[in-house]
Amino acid sequence: MLKIDAGSAVPVYEQLKRQIKLGIVSGKYPSGYKMPSIRQLASQLKINPNTIAKVYRQLETEKFIASKTGSGFFVKMEKEQMGSTRKILLAELADEFISKAIELGFTPDELIKTLSEKLERKSSNDKTE
């Protein structure tokens, strides 16, 4: 389910684009999945339909989805592209994490320490489950 974070300073079309990309890369929207129509998504989120159209157009140029005339947009992503996209998305998440943490005044060492602690805890939790 796509959502808009009303409090965010990230433009709505960026928010949507990223969510759809994540959905595609994580397999939530598999290849061949029919994306909601512009009309449907716009009215559900109460967004200007042109914004949705812009998101879909950009995702089409970036080869995440393809349009079939008269029947809408479908997920269409090559296997090879999937790997590189996952890496790009991870890098974006890391950038966001790093810039926020630096804004709060943490040092790189502190970040690495926290991350590895968290990961350790997570993997031990996963084992016990």
């Binding site: 512009i38 009309r39 716009a42 009215s43 559900q44 109460k46 967004i47 200007n48 339909p49």
Partner: peptide
């Protein structure tokens, strides 16, 4: 009101 706005957006998508 929510429904009215949804209807309005549909009209926007259909007929611009």
């Amino acid at each position: 009101r929510n429904l009215a706005l949804e209807t309005l957006v549909k009209t926007m998508a259909d007929r611009n």
